[in-house]
Design a protein around this nucleic acid. Sequence first.
DNA 1: CTGAAAGCGCTTACAG
DNA 2: CTGAAAGCGCTTACAG
Lengths: 332, 332
Amino acid sequence: MANTTIYDVAGAAKVSLATVSRVMNNPEKVNPETREKVLKVIKELGYRPNAIARGLASRKTTTVGIVMADVSRAATAQLLGGIIDISKKYDYAIKLFSMAENDDIKETIRAVVAEQVDGILFLNDELEPSQMEMCMSLIQDAQIPVVLCNAMYDEKDIPAVGIDYENATYDITKELIDKGKKNIYLATTVRRYSVNFHKIAGYTKAMQDAGLEPLVFRTSGDVSINTLHFQEFIKHNNIEAFIAVRDSIAVSFMNVMIKAGYKIPEDCEVVGLQNTKYAILSRPNLTCVDTPVYDIGAVSMRLLTKFMKHEDIQESKVLLPYRIVERETTKE
Amino acid sequence: MANTTIYDVAGAAKVSLATVSRVMNNPEKVNPETREKVLKVIKELGYRPNAIARGLASRKTTTVGIVMADVSRAATAQLLGGIIDISKKYDYAIKLFSMAENDDIKETIRAVVAEQVDGILFLNDELEPSQMEMCMSLIQDAQIPVVLCNAMYDEKDIPAVGIDYENATYDITKELIDKGKKNIYLATTVRRYSVNFHKIAGYTKAMQDAGLEPLVFRTSGDVSINTLHFQEFIKHNNIEAFIAVRDSIAVSFMNVMIKAGYKIPEDCEVVGLQNTKYAILSRPNLTCVDTPVYDIGAVSMRLLTKFMKHEDIQESKVLLPYRIVERETTKE
DNA sequence: CTGAAAGCGCTTACAG
DNA sequence: CTGAAAGCGCTTACAG
């Protein structure tokens, strides 16, 4: 079946192709009777305008480019969930671009620009400031609106949606401190997520405010690796409380502790900073700071649509509320 | 900055735009010297051809459409991981289309077709045969190659990549039977994934071959719901072994059992049918059939590239090998 | 309200 | 090996 074009519709409806185009794009500008006639033909023929041709002619593709590092991260998938739901609502198509660690960032951004997307959503935060700088200037050169999704970049005034990880981590740390804990450890990952910097900052501030020494250490996100690490680690450290930037790391740590004979939360309180499904599948259930990742995706996409439609923007940086979900790995 | 076009390059290199085009698409057809000259200008200007214009002119977008139901499923994200890696290698862009439960399927497919993708990857398997039928005939009308990714559809001869879930589940069930287990339960979900049908079939066959009664039951994929369900369920059933279509369900069940005072695997062996990260974060670690989801994504994308390039295809249906990973929830 | 025509930025036979 | 020209399927001023 050759695809039906606007010419086929025009022919069958006995109007010009300009009229067919108007029926689709500016229906109010065409006489109701002809409009109905055209609409009928469109339906009969099952016509859908060729999105590529439309994109070329109108210079708008109603497509947003998602630039991300790693789909397999749980947070990425959740972010995508929110983005997809909103993009459907506003009729935007989604084009995916991944940026692996040793990819040429410049080339990736150029590719995105070459695809003529109307807007860009930048997921995650795995770039160093200098790389981020480069990305943003390339995007701004191309005059494409961009929103950072679950990443904050303070140096430049780039629209962003996230949560206040610093305050969130401060709060949970403070809670632990108020219970009298002193040796509170924060486990972060080797890779340098900007979000983790904020978490570390919040934790560090809470500890210092209380006159305690911050105990930040890095471990692997890989369970088998960090398990070995923890087995050694707990031998040499007296850990009264443990906060992990990722839930899976908290669970992995807890498993090691329990197998070593410790009781959770009696001997050590454990907290995750995400609230993923891992938190309710662990035994005991993990207390978490709840990060509304789906919402971050949804709100950032919504914000981007505003930019693409040149609507008035109230706030170009938005911080979504977080909350602490007390479960079984903390006391009281 | 106005984007540089092929005219700019042609002007700067003092050649016609046809030559510039050839340098990009058929470099062997142009004189090495002029080619170098043009390449130099392209580099200087940072030129990237407008993908939309190219798509319209050549009728090829080097874009594949991914049709999927739910990003948030762990399997979907892993599938995407494999797909993305291969699509990068072969220089295809990716366009995402989600199909929620009450979406108009026909419209979704039409939208995909309207986007002029060169090929379609159909993820998952949440459609009923009649819906699947409709999708496939729409796609075939449009003459777009399609590959089913982690889904099998036997009625029609549609290319597909997956694993032999029936045999895999047969094997693991048989293993349990050979250990003398009789009351072996299979937990599946409410939603009717075709993949689950295969799992049920394999399990049922193994049970029947051994003269045992198949004990299939449905539960929720939601942890808080299935936890309540299991708490009741274990009171009224003598469960010697438990197989779950999803790892998270197996872990959830195991947590309920352990909290109720049972020992795993001594009192009951537990098996998951995926091998996700849940399996190594549970305590004890979950024995699993390992489904190479990333590979399924990668292989299906590779297969699709062959169709798009009209290469010779040996096998249009491929079943990837699986294996059983013995961990701590089974004995011996 | 409607149509004829130019143009979006490319590719691709067709001549030469 | 290279260029002039038509065409991909639309949108959008511009007349009327």
